[in-house]
């Protein structure tokens, strides 16, 4: 579940883990790819994606129960 980090791009700078208001990345360490400790607590605020300094290192996946209903 969200977010998803691309290991090959992430530099382990720790910004996402530091900024996440819900502490989804609890237990992460600097210089390592952050751990997604509590994926189900992500509120999809997008802060981690917007603040990550590396393009496309981190993205969010919309959980299927949250797919918009439209016609």
């Amino acid at each position: 579940m969200p977010p998803i980090i691309d290991d090959s791009k992430c530099t382990g700078c720790g910004v996402c883990a530091e900024h996440c208001p819900q502490d989804v990345f609890f237990g992460s360490e600097i210089k390592k790819t952050p751990v997604i400790a509590f994926p189900e607590e992500c509120w999809h605020c997008y802060a981690c994606v917007l603040d990550c300094p590396v393009p496309e290192a981190i993205r969010l996946r919309t959980p299927v129960p949250m797919m918009l209903s439209y016609r």
């Binding site: 208001p21 819900q22 189900e40 992500c42 509120w43 999809h44 959980p63 129960p65």
Partner: peptide, 14 residues
């Protein structure tokens, strides 16, 4: 709206 799910709320779960 999704029973048992805490993150699918209009505001914020914290």
């Amino acid at each position: 709206p999704t029973p048992g799910w805490f993150n699918n709320i209009a505001t914020r779960l914290s």
